[in-house]
Design a protein around this nucleic acid. Structure first.
Length: 892
RNA sequence: AGGCACGUACGUCAAUGGUAGACGGCUUCCCUUACAAGGAAGAGGUUGGGGGUUCGAAUCCCUCCGUGCCUACCA
């Protein structure tokens, strides 16, 4: 058997994925059981712009673990992959590429530009699919989707038309967030607010027919050119006589009124606010309330307009600010300037400061949709968030405060709005140009130049990918999906909108559960970001430690934010190597043996066999349970300790004498087969987390390795075997008790060896005194294995301890004692100290427990079984302490 | 400005009212024929501070300190 000593992930990762994919194992059709339950996940589509980052690797790992687990559990499983066209980001990328050629998108024109983006998408998107294959993601590539695919675009148009016909989508002139760089409107969610150190300017406005002034405070003096009123709070007595007065607005020839409005906070600034309805969202609202004119002084490029006055026209908004301040100072109207920190809105993509502008856009009324989502939460508690604590309330709260959604964007890359205009300006909304012509009765139509917000098509993802608006087999089978895995930051942007759209068009929630993943931070606790260049590239980690080790690291992150720690991956790389070598041992001793599931059911097994079977079943139970409740950390820990501690450290060691016997015998063959059989189950348990190494090793195991009955027709692969489930009768508490006594005995002897500095090569005699008959039998039948594990020359077991005085001793649980004769080797003082330390530990514990018992209310109020437990532990400790005491006294 | 979360061993994280654990790191010994990416044995924590509820608190409540995140129309 020719297996290298070190596991080489690259080798194992090479061929398996291709074979899985080629054989159609990822597609739900592989499942031949017509009554199989269904499990569906749609992937949160990555942007075509990026390559995969750690956040993707994290989410994909979670989704793949769930998918593989369910597939192995017999579910008809679909994990549907795809990508998002990511309007602004993608357009920006291509625009930047053009810039390097010295061109703008206008040089190409819309059609050529969009062609160019498609070309770019083909390259970049291809990258992502290669990377996802590397991750081992068991997605059904035959169903891969892209938000700009023809069928998904049809779904988008269908939704738009239906909403328009219901009056939920409308076109209107409103104040919007405008990005002067990208030249497009942005939704509130695409704007980020950042704190900024700025100034607060106090400007004096003269009152007409009076020598009085009204002073206003502003962070944006340049907007005063567009002021159409000054507002004060109705209850503010300082200004009550000025309400209705006329202000002579400096630098312009305008006269504007002083009005009253509750919005004004008398405590802030001067208590008087300048109102610029055309350039501030609040002022806009107030302008509507008071029917104020809107004077536009800043244009779409953030330059001043002609209405700003001849002195200002064409100036950049910041230049204009300086000039306004200068002029006020000259006129003696600048009261003061103070430092002031406020938050400023920036474009989430390009970080340009947003300019609020009045503009004609498409909007969507959200109230009826919002109510659908709220109703679902109120009546069915769906979606069920995991972890469940904060998100549900945040989600509900956000929905309650929802405002209309600005859905149009002034971009070229995206779904062009299916609205056409007749020469007379009539709006025709239709599913296609032909339909529009029919409706309009003319072919002289111009289509709206705008595209839809990217999130419009993403909102339809769970059903548009399954064939909606057609009533497809896929839609009927896989909708609603089972769980959505996502990061925290798009719960509103995406999750809530999918819920609304799903309820609206399918009448059912798009997913039952939402699993919210944590965030991987850098080693300093900072968010990983492109601009900070602190991201860790998952592909580099894959190369360094292997995909399986990385997946294990990511799986255990779960829902908590975690600092990236390469050491963790390294330790799981070591774990993979451990698995490799354990299998290597089994295979090196597999002559004549094979995997035989029935071997685990036979009667009259040795203790260590009964024990490992019990442990195996408990492990399966815990892993299934934790996977079903999204407790990935728990699953990983359980599997790690089962494999390393139970299987490697104890089971293999205890099997060794049988397995490595020189002479062939039925006993040897059976021991070898049993070992292989346990290993095979362990690999199956590990497979969802570590698909590559488990497949690699599983393929090498000889014997009968049946697939899950639902996949009977498929060729051999671990990914279609059945996931081990626990069986109550296989759990053997007695075997576990007996094994822990043996483990205790072995550990004690090893402790003595270590403390007494006995060379590992030195064989020692071990004497055990054990008054309990049953326990004595346990020790006796495991005598050879124990001797091997503690490197003993011989072990004598009797009902009483009968050892020379010059011995190191220990007291075991259950009243047994042991001695290691150390004639000439023992240092009595050292031994006394060692035993003393042990005694101290026991006493400390006893003190705690006694204090508990001394409290009358504990005995009265705590459950009886807990009190009994404490009592029996105290008794046990007391016995061991006194045995130790005697041992110490006998030493000399 | 509000809201929410978090603070546990040197590091990264577990532990949903019942004896505080894991992995890495650290110390000592060992290349014992599956594995030095390994084996064996150890050291290390009054769970951020203070108060409360409880027989019992890392866990529930209050408060303070520190750290993140989200939401928001203070000019």
């Amino acid at each position: 058997m020719d297996i290298p000593k070190q596991y080489d992930p690259a080798q194992a990762e090479k061929d398996h994925y291709e074979r899985w994919e080629k054989n159609g194992y990822f597609a739900p059709e592989i499942n031949q059981d017509p009554s199989a339950p269904v499990f569906t996940i749609v992937i949160p589509p990555p942007n075509v712009t990026g390559s995969l980052h750690m956040g993707h690797a994290l989410q994909h790992t979670m989704m793949d673990v769930m998918t593989r687990h369910k597939r192995m559990s017999g579910y008809r499983t679909l994990w549907l992959p795809g990508m998002d066209h990511a309007g602004i980001s993608t357009q920006l990328m291509v625009t930047n590429a053009l810039k390097e050629e010295g061109k703008t998108r206008f040089d190409l024109g819309r059609e050529k530009f969009v062609e160019r983006v498609w070309k770019w998408k083909a390259e970049s998107g291809g990258q992502i699919t290669v990377q996802m294959r590397r991750e081992g993601a068991s997605v059904d590539w035959s169903r891969e989707k892209f938000t700009m695919d023809e069928d998904l675009s049809r779904a988008v148009r269908e939704v738009f038309v239906r909403f328009y016909e219901e009056g939920l989508i409308y076109r209107g002139k409103r104040i919007v967030n405008w990005c002067p760089r990208d030249q497009t409107v942005l939704s509130d969610l695409e704007v980020e607010k950042l704190p900024q150190a700025g100034k607060l300017y106090y400007l004096r406005y003269p009152i007409k027919n009076s020598d009085r002034h009204l002073t206003v405070a502003t962070t944006r003096p340049e907007t005063m050119l567009g002021d159409t009123a000054v507002a004060v709070n109705p209850t503010d007595e300082r200004f009550s006589d000025l309400v209705g007065a006329i202000i002579l607005l400096p630098l312009t020839n305008r006269e504007i009124p002083v009005i009253k409005d509750d919005y004004v906070d008398p405590a802030f600034g001067t208590g008087a606010v300048k109102i610029t309805p055309a350039h501030d969202p609040n002022d806009y609202e107030m302008g509507l309330r008071h029917d104020l004119p809107q004077v536009v002084v800043i244009d779409a490029h953030a330059k001043m307009t002609a209405d700003a006055g001849a002195d200002f026209e064409g100036l950049d908004r910041y230049k204009a600010r300086d000039k306004v301040v200068e002029e006020f100072e000259k006129l003696g109207l600048l009261d003061k300037v103070i430092d002031y920190e406020f938050s400023i809105s920036k474009c989430e993509r390009c970080k340009t400061v947003i300019e609020p502008l009045i503009s004609e856009q498409w909007f969507m009324h959200m109230e009826p949709l919002r109510d659908l989502a709220l109703g679902l939460m109120a009546q069915k508690q769906k979606p069920q968030f995991t972890p469940d604590v904060p998100y549900e309330r945040i989600y509900t709260n956000w929905l309650e405060n929802l405002r209309d959604w600005t859905i149009s964007r002034q971009l070229w890359w995206g779904h062009q709005i299916p609205a056409w205009y007749t020469p007379s300006g009539e709006v025709i909304v239709a599913r296609s140009e032909e339909e529009a012509r029919e409706k309009a009765g003319t072919s002289e139509l111009t289509q709206d130049q705008d595209v839809l917000d990217t999130w419009f098509s993403s909102a339809l993802w769970p059903f548009s990918t399954l064939g909606w608006p057609d009533d497809t087999e896929d839609l009927r089978t896989f909708y609603p999906t089972s769980v959505l895995v996502t990061a925290r930051d798009i719960i509103f942007l995406w999750v809530s909108r999918m819920v609304m759209m799903g309820m609206k068009f399918i009448g059912q929630e798009p997913f039952a559960d939402v699993f919210v993943t944590g965030t991987i931070l850098d080693s300093q606790g900072q968010r990983m970001s492109k601009t900070k260049r602190n991201g860790v590239d998952p592909l580099i980690v894959f190369d360094k430690f292997g995909v399986d080790a990385t997946r294990l690291t990511l799986a255990q992150v779960g829902s908590t934010d975690t600092r990236w720690n390469e050491k963790q991956v390294e330790s799981y790389r070591n774990f993979a190597n451990k698995i490799w070598n354990a299998a290597r041992f089994c295979l090196m001793n597999s002559d004549g043996a094979e995997v035989k599931p029935e071997l685990l059911e036979s009667k009259d097994l040795a203790l260590h066999d009964r024990w490992i079977i019990s442990r195996l079943n408990k492990t399966a139970e815990r892993v299934n349970e934790s996977l079903n409740t999204y407790q990935f950390h728990e699953s990983v820990q359980t599997l790690y300790h089962f494999f390393w501690d139970d299987f490697c450290d104890w089971y293999i060691e205890l099997s060794k004498s049988d397995v490595t016997a020189e002479e062939p015998s039925p006993k040897r063959t059976e021991a070898r087969s049993r070992l292989l059989t346990v290993l095979e189950q362990a690999l199956r348990l590990l497979h969802p987390f570590m698909p590559y190494i488990t497949e690699e090793l599983w393929q090498r195991l000889p014997g009968n390795k049946p697939l899950h009955s639902a996949y009977a027709g498929a060729s051999s692969t671990i990914m279609l075997t059945s996931y081990p489930i626990s069986s109550q009768e296989m759990i053997d508490d007695r075997a576990e008790r007996e094994m822990s006594a043996i483990i205790d005995l072995v550990s004690r002897v090893r402790n003595i060896r270590s403390e007494m500095n006995i060379k590992p090569a030195e064989r020692i005699p071990v004497i055990v005194g054990c008054p309990d008959q049953e326990l004595r039998n346990t020790f006796s039948s495991a005598r050879d294995q124990i001797a091997r594990l503690v490197r003993a020359a011989e072990i004598s077991i009797a009902d009483q301890l009968n050892a020379p005085k010059a011995s190191a001793r220990a007291v075991l649980v259950g009243g047994a004692e042991l001695a290691v004769p150390l004639e000439g080797l023992i240092d009595f003082e050292q031994e006394r100290q060692r035993l003393g330390r042990e005694q101290d530990k026991l006493r400390a514990e006893a003190t705690k427990l006694e204090a508990q018992l001394a409290n009358p209310s504990f005995v009265e109020r705590a459950p009886a079984e807990r009190v009994d437990e404490v009592r029996s532990r105290i008794a046990d400790i007391a016995q061991r302490t006194s045995q130790l005491q005697q041992t110490i006294e006998n030493l000399q």
